[in-house]
Amino acid sequence: MTAPKKKQAEVQPKLNNKVALTETNLFLIITISVFFVMYVSAVVFLGGRFTKVQYFLDILNVYASLITLTCGMSLVMITGGIDISVGQVTSLVCMTCAVYLENKGGNVFVAFLIAIGIGLAFGLIQGLLVAYLNIQPFIITLAGLFFAKGLTTIICSDPLAIETNKAFLTLKGTHIKFGNNYIEIGVVVALATVIILFSVLRWTKLGRNFYAVGGNNQSANMLGINVKLTKFMAHLICGFCAGLGGWLLLMNLGSGNPANGEGAEMNAIASSIIGGTMLSGGVGNIIGSLFGVLSLATIKGIVPKLTGTSDDPWWPNITVSGMLCLFLILQSIIIARKNRKKA
């Protein structure tokens, strides 16, 4: 809860120094405020399950996979690209690992490596095509999406629950307890990913290059940055995150299903954008992305309550899209105003 205050404290003296608020900070503050306002009002006005600590922890448990996906997505978006294959890659990873673990009685560690391997393979190929052949990321990752979708059903077309692999079930059942409440280990992995990627973006040369390339890739080139390599790395890391996200989803659900990751790319993009990542590139923050996911989760929790009938499955989806639309238009207006200032 101290996070927003701290940020404001940091921002205040800056303003006194007549240093304008950067877009990154501005969006971060908006996102964090949006999340807290939503969550607090849910607690106050709706009460019920929102007041329970475990409800919040369950959000983390369920959305651990999406958090990692969003991290990867934000990274690619910061460089000015996009990757819409992550959702189906998640499905593919789940399905492959489920088949390996359940039908082949495979080793959990090997399964984990398979998961990461699949993600990296997608990231590698898409990254190569985007960075070195200059192909629109959207079209190539759209093809990736369908490739993963087809491959998933080739491997196994029916949902498959893992019920016999003892080692996996033990791992899945491992919880970290706080009194009566618990989180799954997936949450730890997801939060670790957030922290690592945040640090990479903040304090490493590679991380700063992501921002430079997204800000203006011609300038970045003039400044002596290897633009192609940077774009490639972004896609590779995003692929890694997709593989990891698939594994976390499998740990949470315990089953493979072609529909597992359906629409996850959308949620990841929406979370990134709500979290303050600009589609035009160059602006974004991993912490913001985390709060973007939490906001998304909260909306999806609140909306059915508001419409009264929890069996109207469409409202959360429409609300999220509406919010995405709103943020997109907001970004577009900000860019237009900036351009006008320049001219």
Binding site: I135, I139, G150, I154
Partner: peptide, 25 residues
Amino acid sequence: VPSTAIYAYKAVIVIVLVILSAPIV
């Protein structure tokens, strides 16, 4: 070929087409 698996074949065709039409290539 199962109908859902056809996506994979088409995706490959798209990728090949897109690569062939890329300005550099």
